[in-house]
């Protein structure tokens, strides 16, 4: 069953075309990896999916779970079960992490028509989930992402993913800035959430992450398009030979 279908997406920022006819299909249960040189439009794709202002399509379509995403606001898309782990998570000074997590957790529960958790039950649940990601209580007492190290920010993104339990997660360079131990923790976190009804799209520069999060399909993105797709071996090939050969082959 397809969860996400992007057809011929074209998008420009400040009159500059960034996405130039990108298509991508993701089915339930699949893990996809998108690799590509800096500036090829990977983060733009992720913002477009999340519905950021200014990232509206010029042409093409996005369907998520049989729903046309284009008219929906970011919060509506999140409620439908789309999650983006930011490449650069945003600091929210003055917003306590615990309160923030409770707010997003309960608003998702409410949307799903499930019971919200009491303060105490939520804290218990949060502790358990945080522990799996080696996130200490102390971190949750701080303001959201404020003064977090690069690695802490990435783990905090996955913590949110675990609490929201989305149908599809797009992880934008979640591996960058992580040492091997942190990479393992984060990957395990993602793998634990994976089941046959949801899907994951990881955007990465490095094959390294794909040793831990095994992709079913690997896409190479360049200049606003997906130019080649293949199985996990494609990532190994890119790791060994770089992008240039694939880029040349295309032109």
């Amino acid at each position: 069953m397809p969860i996400l279908e992007i057809k011929n997406a074209e998008l420009s920022i400040n009159n500059k075309k960034i996405l130039k006819g990108l298509s991508l299909n993701v089915n339930e249960g699949e893990t996809h990896a998108i690799m590509g040189p800096n500036g090829s439009g990977k983060s733009t794709l992720s913002y477009m999916l999340a519905g950021r202002d200014g990232y509206e399509l010029d042409n093409g379509s996005i369907t998520f779970d049989n729903t046309d995403l284009t008219p929906l606001s970011p919060d509506e898309r999140s409620n439908l079960g789309l999650f983006l782990a930011f490449q650069y998570p945003v600091e929210l000074p003055g917003v306590s992490s615990t309160n923030f997590l409770r707010e997003i957790f309960n608003s998702r529960k409410k949307y799903l028509g499930e019971n919200e958790l009491s303060h105490l039950d939520f804290i218990k649940h949060l502790r358990k989930v945080a522990e799996n990601l080696s996130i200490k209580d102390e971190m949750l007492k701080r303001y959201v992402n404020f003064g977090f190290s690069g690695g802490e920010k990435k783990r905090f993104e996955i913590l949110q993913m675990a609490l929201l339990n989305p149908k599809i997660s797009v992880l934008d360079e979640t591996d960058s800035g992580l040492d091997v131990d942190a990479l393992k923790i984060v990957s395990e976190g993602v793998n634990n959430l994976k089941d046959k009804n949801n899907a994951v799209v990881v955007i990465t520069h490095y094959q390294r992450l794909l040793d831990y999060i095994k992709p079913d399909i690997v896409h190479i993105m360049s200049d606003g398009k997906i130019i080649k797709s293949g199985d996990a071996d494609l990532a190994l090939y890119v790791e060994k030979n770089g992008y240039s050969e694939i880029l040349n082959e295309k032109s």
């Binding site: 606001s73 919060d75 898309r77 983006l84 998570p89 707010e103 997003i104 998702r108």
Partner: peptide, 15 residues
């Protein structure tokens, strides 16, 4: 801050 508003909305919080 627009970035902050977007971050919160992307977690299901209305604008």
């Amino acid at each position: 801050d627009e970035d902050q508003i977007f971050y919160l909305s992307s977690r299901g919080i209305s604008k």
